[in-house]
Design a protein around this nucleic acid. Structure first.
Lengths: 161, 161
DNA sequence: GTAAAACCTCAAGTAATATTGAGGTCAATG
DNA sequence: CATTGACCTCAATATTACTTGAGGTTTTAC
């Protein structure tokens, strides 16, 4: 591509800078592969319309959406969940700051949770694996009992050994 | 199975409780599938010897090893890395508390790092996505520039939009 | 001493998250 | 107006971390 695009300056004052984006442009600006964008679209995380020649065009929203996808992924949130969160954004109109804020609020909790978990784990790792207390019955890693340690995954029984 | 094993009480005092474990016992006590143990073994994370009948037998070490595998995985450390860490444990003898401590020390840093990243991300998420400043040039999420935000993954350009 | 439970191997399947490639079309540039 | 880069679809492949199944053997229990 390497489009000669200092046209930005050529846009009329008062006119919105609403140029639609090609898939290549989005890919470059978001630092993701074109194939990843196809993939996200196939999974319903982003959307596009087509030109008469069947090429994808994106509204500028997509840039923030993809940014959010990457941020969320880096926290370990799976795409399916990200998709759900993004689905709460308004359909017709461009999301406002408020919309984004609402979306991020849910993740804030999620992040807090994950940070708590990791912190706890770190302390336990330090306290238990490091000191060898795993062998004893009073090891907190062996006997979680405090937080939601039990749910779903089975406790982290660090053995009786 | 459901072995009638209150034999534990039958062990002679002064005698070490060093009974070798079958794959099923390990699976049950670690709360992992037998197939997972096979898998870990195939990947070199744990090891066993065989009976004359070709069945696996494990030393009690394996219980802690598997526990460590699970703990480490829950922090997002991939098996390949866990394997490397476990490989630092002594070959011949049963690992001591010191050995385990050394191993966990590396992960402690790893965890600290991850906690820092998540915390930073949380704050940025709050500060940037929530407030809508993403649109501006002074958005810290858009212009990382501070921490190791740039390395490897490409910056989290939260777009100019 | 036999039947059930546990074990064995090896191949294939699953799920998430993409990437790569083949074969063909569209569009910007000289 | 032809070339070339960007784009299209669809299928296959890759990685991580396992699970499932088929077909057969060993161990344990009665």
């Amino acid at each position: 591509m390497t489009k000669a695009k200092n046209d930005k300056a050529a846009i009329q004052p008062g006119q919105s800078i609403r140029r639609e984006l090609t898939v290549g442009e989005v890919a470059e600006r978001c630092d993701v592969a074109v194939s990843a964008l196809h993939f996200y679209e196939s999974k319903g995380l982003i959307s596009s319309w087509r030109t008469s020649g069947n090429q994808r065009r994106y509204s500028r929203d997509v840039l923030r959406r993809v940014a959010i996808i990457k941020v969320a992924q880096s926290t370990g949130i799976p795409l399916a969940e990200i998709r759900q969160a993004l689905a709460t954004l308004p359909n017709g109109r461009t999301p406002t700051a408020k919309d984004w804020a609402k979306l991020s609020a849910g993740w804030r909790e999620d992040l807090d949770q994950r940070i708590r978990q990791l912190t706890q784990l770190r302390d336990r790792l330090e306290g238990c694996i490091g000191c060898g207390c795993l062998s004893m019955d009073n090891c907190p890693l062996r006997n979680p009992g405090d937080q939601a340690a039990e749910q779903g995954r089975g406790a982290l029984y660090l053995s009786e050994d």
